[in-house]
Design a protein around this nucleic acid. Sequence first.
DNA 1: CGGGAGGTTGACAATCGTCAATCAGAGTGG
DNA 2: CCACTCTGATTGACGATTGTCAACCTCCCG
Lengths: 252, 252
Amino acid sequence: MSDHDESALLPMVRKLAYWGDFDAADQSAILDLPHRTKRIERNGYIARERETTTHSCLLLSGFAFRHKIVVDGARQILAIHMKGDLVDLQNSFLGVADHSVQTLTDALVAMIPRDAIKQLALQRPRVGMAMWYDTLVDASVFREWIANVGRRDAHTRVAHLLCEFSLRLKVAGLGKATDYELPMSQEHIADCTGLTPVHVNRTLKLLEKENLISRRTSRSIRIGDWNRLADAGDFDTNYLHLREGESALARV
Amino acid sequence: MSDHDESALLPMVRKLAYWGDFDAADQSAILDLPHRTKRIERNGYIARERETTTHSCLLLSGFAFRHKIVVDGARQILAIHMKGDLVDLQNSFLGVADHSVQTLTDALVAMIPRDAIKQLALQRPRVGMAMWYDTLVDASVFREWIANVGRRDAHTRVAHLLCEFSLRLKVAGLGKATDYELPMSQEHIADCTGLTPVHVNRTLKLLEKENLISRRTSRSIRIGDWNRLADAGDFDTNYLHLREGESALARV
DNA sequence: CGGGAGGTTGACAATCGTCAATCAGAGTGG
DNA sequence: CCACTCTGATTGACGATTGTCAACCTCCCG
């Protein structure tokens, strides 16, 4: 794949390679996928609920989130995505989008036509299988979030979210597990956890008072004792289905 | 596929055929999948969190549910499955199960080895793609449940669940959309919606008083005006990604 | 007839939400 | 460099949806 060093899709190969035993042709096929990189500014939409999506995208930099709006206008965030994530394999294959995807920060994405991905999956089943696995991991995270929002109290919910971030940012190479910058406001945290911004604020304060976290600025999270926060958040890395090396990070 | 008329896996062909343009060989390959049918009694486990799963299963009759237990022992139900559903494509591919799957009633299942499914997906990409789509729909339902549990009040949550059941039972050929038997206790409903059994009880009573539902016995649900219940439940069929004919059922 | 699971109800408690004011920090124009 | 502004963070007082506890009832089944 020496002639592909420049492809913006390299992170996609890296992401998928874990699940499939790719040969050079598989890798080339991914890198050769037609795509167009695009800059999207903060709060820009990648997909809108009820619209038809024709492209999937690879997040090259920045953060994005999926969400739904319920009847009274409240927003529920369903997932956060970061550098290297394959966003919207979900919506694009099923036709009409069942949720919206929006950027949390300015972002750079590679837009890939849905049909090209479909062709790739059909012609190179190993790659198709790897993409399938990738969406299965997404689904696992959704399940954990159902449990988080459904059966944990505010304190545990927020701690859990902070742990998830900690690990995922580390794995994505975006910071240390014990010291990172939250890419979102307390209102976003509230919409992730099914709480109100006010209650999230109180909960963060409490976590701070308990010495589970400390904050230099309101968004910079430092975790003193990772295992203690994980306990508080009822956090078990299992659901992230990390590869060997990565889950080791959980033991700080 | 005339020589396969007896295969227990026929429902699997029917389920998947919608997503792929199968030829006779694809269909045969599915029907030829090695499998063993097995009877599981009520509350039996199909998979246990933290254990390794080697089989996926097709639910031939009865009901099943996925769930997680959180730290204080509370249970969160993640999904309900019924006749024809392909259960545990999720857990089995990712190795260690991140949640448990248990039957709600006595059930009959066809156990299919994970590796056989994997081989099928690699050798017949169209079938692989169809299975992928099937799990994407599961993921869509998970997302809706996050929103249900995270951002709707008890009244709306329960109404939403009743609507989802109504449609899915109808689609699975297990009852009329406006008159069906709930396969679960109020405690199960509570664990689906993140409420307590007591509050579920009160909510059902309220729905009854509002004439949104009526019950002959505690589990037989009759929906007077489907659209009114759907409004109360903030229910939009979109997330179920039903095929053409099926979503038409939504308009009763 | 006895036992058990599950449904129903009431009284009371508490987590979390609402409302509203104030504060802090980043960016902007003069 | 300083006012100005805007978004987001913080805090307090109060309210309410939902949980807890506990009793009792109902139905099913051996």
